[in-house]
Amino acid sequence: MSETAGASQPILCVTNLMRDFGGVQALRGVNLNVMRGSITGLIGPNGSGKTTLFQVISGVDAGATGSITFDGEPILGKRPSKIYHRGLARTFQLSRVFPELTVLENLIVAGSRRDHRAHERALGLLERVHLNDYADVVGKNLSYGQQKLVEFLRVLMSEPALILLDEPAAGVNPTLRETLWDMVRHLNGLGTTFLIIEHNMEVIADLCSEVYVLSEGEILAHGDFATVRNDERVLEAYFGKSRKSSVA
């Protein structure tokens, strides 16, 4: 399963990750490598453990066992804020903009304390997605799509090396969605690595150089999208158990 290594190095290595919720095994030995500079997709049916995996990697969920190394350093069990400052950021599936903080404050709080140009950089980011008129609007007064976009911009403030996006386009209108994917491509061109949970297969096919399929807490398959799409086990996981007998 490791023939895809190629020339680049993994920035994130997840090894034998397990998470147990009182007898229910949400993650049962997940192994996953995200290559530096890639856009990696994470797909799988609902309830397969994708968001749990993000919760564990980002440090919110501290109850997992196994190992996670980011940029060569172990991060499992570290505080989320510490992981964030190491350069690993993530967004939430449902927007978590700070409702009573202005858009500008939402961005600045996510930047480094030592960044004296945070203000200008925040305005620059807003300009890029044409939200600069909203700098002084409080988070709760934005549309849902705008909130998700602000949440995405927010994590860019720390210039992370790896960004985990949890269905960033869900609930976002088509125009803003394009803006978002353009940003992802642009940042990837500048060297940022992405791990993306997304249900839209066209987007996955278009963006991702490598795709992992998670089902019932295990990685079923990985490789480029074409390979994964034709994998028997993947089809089964998505479309039912009727063909169980055909798989070893």
Partner: peptide, 18 residues
């Protein structure tokens, strides 16, 4: 600002480095 972020959403504040 960080304190107010905690008031709004403590988990999200921690997630953006607070």
């Amino acid at each position: 600002l960080e304190l107010r972020a905690i008031r709004e959403d403590e988990e999200a504040a921690e997630m953006v480095g607070v």
